[in-house]
C-alpha cells in the first residue's frame, strides 16, 4: 500500500517535471516499484517481466528517442488546456471510484474471478502439464494461442519500427547527396552520404 502511494507521488512528479530525461528516469523507477508491488501480490513472474521489460527495455528505448530528438519540454504550456483536462480527469476518476463500490474486496477468496477456470488450472495443471509453475503451464499450454498472438504483435511492431525508421535514414541519405552534389560533386559526396 505504501509502495502504491509512492507510485502515485511519482506519477504526479512525472506530470510536473519538464526535463524529459528526468521524466524517463522517473518512469523507469515507477516500473521498478510496480515490480516490487507485484512480488508483494504473489505475481513473481509478472514482477521479473516488468523489471526486465518495463523498467529496462522501455527506459532504454525512451532514452534512445531522447538522444535522437530533444531533451527539454517546451517551457510555456498554455493554461487554457490544463484546466479542462483536469476537470475531465477528475470526473472520470469519480465515476471509476463509484464503479469500485461493486467490486469484490481486496484478497476476497469468494470473488467471481477465483471461481471459473482458475481452480481447475491450480488443481490439474501439475498432472496435465507437469510443471510446478502454474503461470508457465497456462502461458505455454492452456493459453498457447495467446502467446502465439503476442509473438505476431511483436513481429508487427518490429516490422513497423524498421519500416518507419529505415525509410527516414534512406531519405536523409538522398537529401545529403543532393545537397552535396553541386558543391563538391562526384563519388566523394556519395561516399559521405552513405554514412549518415
Amino acid at each position: 500500500m505504501v509502495l502504491m502511494l509512492f507510485m502515485a507521488a511519482m506519477a504526479i512528479a512525472m506530470a510536473r517535471v519538464r526535463d524529459l530525461f528526468a521524466v524517463v528516469m522517473l518512469s523507469g523507477v515507477f516500473s521498478l516499484t510496480a515490480a516490487a508491488i507485484y512480488v508483494v501480490l504473489d505475481a513473481v513472474d509478472v514482477a521479473f517481466t516488468e523489471a526486465a521489460v518495463g523498467a529496462g527495455i522501455s527506459t532504454v528505448l525512451m532514452l534512445a528517442t531522447l538522444a535522437l530528438t530533444t531533451r527539454a519540454e517546451k517551457a510555456s504550456s498554455d493554461r487554457t488546456k490544463s484546466l479542462p483536462a483536469l476537470f475531465v480527469v477528475l470526473f472520470t476518476g469519480a465515476i471509476l471510484v463509484y464503479g469500485t463500490f461493486d467490486m469484490p474486496h481486496y484478497g476476497d477468496k469468494t470473488a467471481p474471478i477465483h471461481s471459473h477456470v482458475a481452480p481447475r488450472y491450480i488443481e490439474k495443471s501439475g498432472d496435465e502439464v507437469g510443471l510446478p509453475n502454474i503461470v508457465t503451464s497456462i502461458l505455454a499450454s492452456y493459453r498457447g494461442y495467446d502467446t502465439l498472438g503476442e509473438v505476431f504483435v511483436i513481429f508487427t511492431a518490429a516490422t513497423g519500427v524498421l519500416a518507419i525508421l529505415g525509410r527516414t535514414r534512406r531519405r536523409r541519405r538522398n537529401e545529403a547527396n543532393e545537397d552535396a552534389r553541386p558543391a563538391t560533386g562526384g563519388p566523394a559526396a556519395d561516399k559521405e552520404g552513405a554514412r549518415p
Binding site: T49, D146, A158
Partner: peptide
C-alpha cells in the same frame, strides 16, 4: 494459491505494451 490466470494475461500485456511503446517512439 493466488489466481494464476490474471498473471498470465498481464505477462502477455507487458510485452505487447513495450512493443506498442517502441512503435510510438519510432
Amino acid at each position: 494459491y493466488s489466481n494464476p490466470l490474471p498473471h498470465v494475461l498481464i505477462l502477455t500485456a507487458i510485452v505487447v505494451g513495450v512493443a506498442t511503446t517502441a512503435l510510438g517512439l519510432a
